[in-house]
Design a protein around this nucleic acid. Sequence first.
DNA 1: TGACTAAAGGATAAGAAAGTCCTTTAAGCG
DNA 2: CGCTTAAAGGACTTTCTTATCCTTTAGTCA
Lengths: 164, 164
Amino acid sequence: MLSRPSTYAIRALTYLAMQPPGKLSGSREIADHEQIPNSYVCKILLELRRKRLLRSYKGIGGGYELALPADKINLLMVVRSMEGELALTECILQDQQCSARGQCSLHDSWAELRNQLLHFLETQTVADLARTKKTRLGELPGGRSQGPRDQIDQMNHLSINCRT
Amino acid sequence: MLSRPSTYAIRALTYLAMQPPGKLSGSREIADHEQIPNSYVCKILLELRRKRLLRSYKGIGGGYELALPADKINLLMVVRSMEGELALTECILQDQQCSARGQCSLHDSWAELRNQLLHFLETQTVADLARTKKTRLGELPGGRSQGPRDQIDQMNHLSINCRT
DNA sequence: TGACTAAAGGATAAGAAAGTCCTTTAAGCG
DNA sequence: CGCTTAAAGGACTTTCTTATCCTTTAGTCA
């Protein structure tokens, strides 16, 4: 449905949106939490920086942070950043003739569905995702405080870089 | 949105649905009309035959025809024939954790959209597509009768086979 | 300044999807 | 039967997506 890079981008941005303001997160940290290959997440973060959705800082203590308030980043922006214009615009049957002349009966119904999908992506923001994710994490058995995962995270606070 | 094979399959079936009952169409004929590489359409037609959506006959005068009435073949059947279970079932973010625990806020809205899409595919039949296409062809400037395309078609009535 | 850290970015590899080619099988026709 | 036609089907190539690797650049800190 969405391309891999798009979904990775959304997840990375959501992760950043969950961090306290001012905190920077390294690529490794994001990759580990979101289970995305690190070298691949680097590439995606770079692209998101170019599209001005996040800022990056090199060197010790460096990392990434959102360039906009999380509630100003909607999913359509992210997807467009990664895929350019969505492949949702044409005839669902990828029929040249049809696209040109509007020949197939799918067009009308499809156009409506497509608009709904675009609207869906446009209204959902990274802030929404972050909020829900936080809430649902809190509901997990054992709650949020000091799961085994968090302990490991603390141990891993040694910085590891993009190359590994 | 739909995979290439799915769209080709829908178009090939629609073409067959537009033919007079009892008429067989060769792969070449379908490929030419639908602008699909011939050797590739052969493969797709074979798959559709295996899924019992069409019948085929070898030898002189052979070709393909629908195995069911066109209005009994809906698009969901076709897409499933080509892609197996749709890649629409999971979390739109392809997040393992999320899929398991229902953690992301997209789930509910996405589930609704997904159902609409499935419903859309399920209600549209190959017969519908064929009907609309015929109608719209009729509306074209010059009408249906004897466009240049048709004349070429007649000339091409020499049979050419799958190997070319 | 030099050692270290982390992002930037290009080159390349691995895998899947799309498309081609060629041989085989089966049917019709003289 | 032997020739022709057309689908069946496997092997292969191409292309695109996804992912990795490695070098470079730009910071921090002692």
